[in-house]
Amino acid sequence: MTDTIFMVFAVMSIASAIAVVTWRNPVHCVLALIASFAGVAGLFYLLSAPFIAVMQIIIYAGAIIVLFLFVIMLLNLKKNEMGGDAPVQDRLFTVFLCVITVIILSIPVVATFTGTFYDQYKKTFPKPDANLGITETIGQEIFSAHALAFELISILIIAALIGAIYLAKKRQRG
């Protein structure tokens, strides 16, 4: 059962990701991106991270996607302003590079999770710690061990805000 659900989410995220990078119209791409994020959120849930799954929906779908849509509407692109794809030979070469990457990165993954290392950890897989992904654990973790990082995030968002507002506004001194 879990495997089937996993496969569904996996296919959903991969297929819509491919759609994002192949379709031409940004609006369509954004919609595909939502589907991809949703698929990944489902995977997060399966990986016993329900809180992160929810945050994924809220932050990505809620914030990032909306930002993209706003900008697309703001720019109101005409067809000739969009820019299409790279020439065919470039795209083929890129596909080739990506395939190599997948192979290179898969070799160690497969090698790792078939040997003794895998057996050692296999016992814990079926039953994850019940507290692993729940909000309380993450909350405690954030406000104890990673309190400084949490503060730093707020500073980072301030910096991003200042930068974004400055860049997007029209008026300039002088």
């Binding site: 990673h146 990082a149 730093l152 995030i153 980072l156 910096a159 930068g163 974004a164 860049l167 300039q172």
Partner: peptide
Amino acid sequence: LIMLFLGIELTSLSVYALTAISKH
């Protein structure tokens, strides 16, 4: 690694904006 990543991002985001500071 978290501090490393956040430090890089804080630096980079500010510097991206600074690069375009004379946006005209």
